[in-house]
């Protein structure tokens, strides 16, 4: 396999995506890069270039002398205050300028995490930093680079949302790109291979959901969708197919899904409460008819097997 080059830049974010990919399995990130033939030109928490080398590297990329296959951006593009970009600077200049220059040179551009993808933390109307994603602002196409932007390989920005990114999302994407295999994207330009199913798929609490055994407070063992704010059924990601740290997921453990791969994350509504209308969640799983769903739920509740109903009832009574 031909060696591919990767340059990783951090902007308005928490570095959590870098920390998350360090948990990549199996065997580990460094070995995977080696196996994939990826040469990391620069990563801010891993690389040790001398100052001169780092300067030369950026100059060479910008002049076209150094080929850049994958440009990864972690963090949103800060436009504030007042569109100056001065809330996030690189050597005294707005970092957005460097982002635009590097983006113009890359074969593929990967937006790493929800901030880089959709704006994420600091991207809502009253947020001072005026963060935007590389090619989206929430679910609206455009973002920092504009809806018509294509990288050198004639690709839109590949969006890998998640707060943080799941290591598997990056691993799958790089593997497909490197092997020249087709990378199909969804309507938000995210690889379907990871974002094609909902967080609900594979949750171990599905059996409770199936029979409408809904938790009414934290710390129970049923489904968190109706009352506890879980957005698993309305959020696309493979958290319950490829487990976190190869162990578990928030919803399996009992923490509601906060919808962190969604374009509107972080939502302004309270996180641990389900917003409801007439006793049912306002947001139902994508493409569902409300009336049919309610009818199904009532029938399912009536059909709940005794052992499950009993276990859930005991649990909720005891605590």
């Amino acid at each position: 396999m031909e060696t591919k080059t990767l340059f990783w830049l951090q902007s308005g974010g928490c570095s959590g995506d870098s920390m998350s990919i360090l948990n990549m399995d199996e065997p580990d990130l460094f070995t995977q890069f080696k196996h994939m033939g990826i040469e990391v030109l620069w990563h801010p928490s891993l690389s040790c270039l001398s100052p001169m080398e780092q300067d030369q590297l950026i100059e060479k990329i910008l002049s076209g002398e150094q080929k850049l296959d994958y440009f990864c951006l972690e963090g949103n593009v800060a436009l504030g205050p007042n569109n100056s970009g001065m809330f996030d600077t690189y050597r005294g200049e707005p970092k957005k300028d460097l982002i635009a220059q590097l983006a113009a040179k890359a074969e593929y551009i990967l937006a790493i995490g929800t901030c880089a993808t959709f704006g994420g933390m600091g991207s809502h109307a009253n947020d001072e930093m005026q963060g935007v994603g590389l090619q989206f602002h929430h679910n609206e196409k455009g973002g920092f680079l504009g809806k018509n932007f294509r990288s050198a390989s004639d690709f839109p920005i590949i969006n890998l949302s998640g707060c943080p990114i799941h290591p598997k999302a990056l691993e799958l994407t790089l593997n497909l790109l490197i092997r020249g295999l087709p990378l199909e994207l969804d309507d938000l330009n995210r690889p379907k291979v990871y974002y094609g199913i909902s967080v609900h798929n594979g949750c171990t609490r599905n059996v409770s959901h199936e029979f409408k055994l809904e938790d009414t407070k934290l710390g129970e063992d049923g489904c968190l969708f109706f009352n506890i704010g879980c957005k698993g059924p309305t959020t696309r990601a493979s958290c319950n197919k490829y487990l976190w740290n190869e162990q578990s997921s928030k919803t399996r453990a009992g923490v509601p899904c906060f919808g962190c791969t969604r374009p509107d994350f972080p939502m302004p509504e309270p996180f641990y409460v389900t917003e409801k209308i007439a006793g049912t969640p306002i947001e139902l799983p994508e493409g569902i008819d409300r009336a049919a769903y309610l009818a199904y739920k009532d029938m399912a509740a009536a059909a709940a097997p005794d052992y499950l109903r009993k276990a859930h009832h005991e649990k909720t009574q005891n605590d």
Binding site: S20, L22, M24, N245, E246, Q247, V255
Partner: peptide, 20 residues
């Protein structure tokens, strides 16, 4: 280092950014 954070994933669902 990724082995030790499995402790958090087991108790809290994932590392990082869980809210258990």
């Amino acid at each position: 280092s990724k082995d030790i954070v499995k402790v958090i994933a087991i108790i809290g669902g994932q590392w990082l950014h869980t809210s258990h």
